[in-house]
Design a binder for these strands. Structure first.
Lengths: 141, 141
DNA sequence: TTTGAAGTTTGTAATGGTTCCAAAAAGTCA
DNA sequence: TGACTTTTTGGAACCATTACAAACTTCAAA
């Protein structure tokens, strides 16, 4: 159960998604998937890549995040109209959102149940139910 | 139980909120509150005002929407990162969001119950729980 | 291995919703 | 009315995101 080769895991994910394993996608994939569940913005990931010594343009970060999202390797979380978050956790779950710090935390989907949901109106079908628990942050932070 | 004077209702709301009843605020207030629950974007309300023959700048529409929100006459709904919706329904409720048309519908808060919510983490307090039911829209629309 | 077509990346320009700003206009109250 | 405060306004500025066309990679067939 040890990591054989550094890129092996991400490489497989990319192949399965039909995405060419380019240097940039591999590097971003590693940053995103090699360390548990994460919530990132494009800007933040870009900065992180720079710091890790990986040269990727911001445009590519955006492209990649969207391609990963289309391939269901990521999920977009809409909580704040000023920026878009991408979540590496694509399983059934919800979020805590700390309003003033912009910090996101997962809430396991198994823990929460939404009762009494109305039917999807005529001509539409249910795509997803998002529960966002908005928190007033501690001003001391 | 009839409407006495056209602006009376909005005027009272403004006074109660400590907002001066200017021509612009009265006009926007009427558009917003005189016809049931509504979900508007700044651009849409601006256009609507123009069509109704009310001259208001877009900047004022933004200012007013925010002031109304601060005064709890409106509530902001975050469902789509590309635009901000304002909701004239400030009571406890949730939303249907039709993903491709951008259409929002209220779901009465009494109908839905969220079970199993975790406690707010140390140093934060619960501000609000938003349930967003995302719908795949009918492509025929 | 070479080659060429298709897919990717990149810097930069463009977009679009929203906010900022300082001057002009309107509301308030004695 | 006059003096003062709050609002409104048009236009510039902002900023996250997207668009674009040129340069660069990838990949598989020859």
């Amino acid at each position: 159960m040890k990591e054989e080769r550094p890129f092996a895991q991400t490489l497989t994910r990319l192949r399965d998604a039909g995405l060419r394993p380019t240097r940039q996608r591999l590097a971003l994939g590693r940053l995103l998937f090699d360390s548990g569940d994460r919530h990132v913005t494009a800007e933040a990931l870009h900065e992180e890549a720079q710091k890790a010594g990986v040269s990727v343009s911001l445009a590519t970060v955006y492209n990649t995040l969207h391609q990963f999202t289309d391939a269901h390797l990521l999920r977009e979380v809409v909580v704040d109209s000023s920026r878009t978050y991408f979540d590496t956790n694509v399983s059934d779950h919800h979020h805590f959102f700390v309003e003033n710090s912009g910090h996101l935390m997962d809430i396991d989907g198994g823990k929460i149940a939404v009762m009494g949901l109305p039917e999807a109106p005529e001509g539409t079908s249910l795509a997803r139910v998002d529960v966002i628990v908005r928190l007033a942050g501690d001003p001391r932070n």
